[in-house]
């Protein structure tokens, strides 16, 4: 089993883990913006940069993204060195220029001593930092790929296909959930949910009447996972109640 040293602590790790995995498990704080444990790492935001060196390669050191870098026995990692902090400050300075109004970015930047951006702030933009989590969760986890990126370079953006309400969207709102800067708007009422300019009817629990899933989402999940048609008729709470009751009945037999 490989062992690595993070900020002076010798830590055991699993083969194939990333430096970030080890940090998380040991509660060593590394800031991230484009990472989510349910989604494959992408290494886009560059905020999780750490400094690495290795006793076997004297004189060598490097900066890598913790979310992508695989552990190697003997690796020495610094998560909060002066150089790392300087790098992150630069990244946050750039992000602040892109999203000067995002409170999430403002707060993070301030932690690294950046109060005002040194670059030209983009005053008319939204708070999207292009981390791509929304697109990736929709594609990788939900499996519908309703939204994507459009253009590239400086004009790259997250976009509905053809700039129209996305036809493949099932209204699950996973994209809004993972968005680190809360860009994706969701309007939720007991009867419907509005997201990406589309309105989705909610499916209600037959027992308590609480709406727990959109109709499209229910149909999608039933088809995808080959579930019985009534699988989502009960919400999680009522389902648990039912199971408990059944167990009680069984135990009394």
């Amino acid at each position: 089993m490989p062992e690595i040293i993070i900020d002076g602590r010798r830590l055991k790790c699993e083969e194939g883990e990333t430096v970030l995995d080890v940090c998380k498990r040991n509660r060593i704080e590394v800031p991230t913006l484009c990472y989510h444990e349910a989604i494959e790492s992408w290494g886009g935001c560059r905020l999780c940069m750490v400094e690495i060196s290795h006793p076997k390669w004297p004189g060598w050191s490097n900066w890598v993204t913790a979310c992508l870098y695989p552990v190697q026995d003997g690796l020495v990692v610094g998560t909060n060195t002066t150089r790392v902090r300087r790098l992150r400050a630069t990244v946050l300075d750039l992000l602040l220029a892109r999203c000067p109004n995002s409170s999430v970015i403002q707060k993070l930047a301030a932690e690294y001593g950046v109060e005002d951006t040194n670059y030209e702030p983009r005053l008319d933009g939204d708070n999207c930092i292009l981390c791509g989590l929304c697109v990736r969760v929709c594609d990788e986890v939900i499996g519908v790929t309703a939204i994507g990126t459009a253009n590239r370079g400086a004009s790259k953006e997250i976009s509905e296909p053809l700039k129209e309400p996305p036809v493949d969207c099932i209204g699950c709102a996973a994209c809004a959930y993972v968005c680190p800067t809360d860009v994706i708007q969701v309007i939720q009422t007991p009867d419907y949910r509005v997201i990406w300019d589309r309105t989705f009817d909610m499916y209600k629990c037959v027992e308590c009447g609480i709406s727990h899933i959109t109709v499209e989402q229910k149909d999608w999940l039933i088809a995808k996972d080959n579930l019985p048609a009534d699988y989502y008729d009960l919400c999680d709470i009522c389902k648990r109640k039912h199971t408990a009751e059944k167990q009680k009945e069984l135990s009394m037999l």
Binding site: V135, C138, D139, V144, T145, A146, I147, G148, T149, A150, N151, R152, S159, E160, P161, L162, P166, V167, D168
Partner: peptide, 12 residues
């Protein structure tokens, strides 16, 4: 192929 991906390539 999802239209989102087609659109992504077309605009790339």
């Amino acid at each position: 192929v999802p239209i989102a991906r087609v659109y992504g390539v077309a605009t790339f």
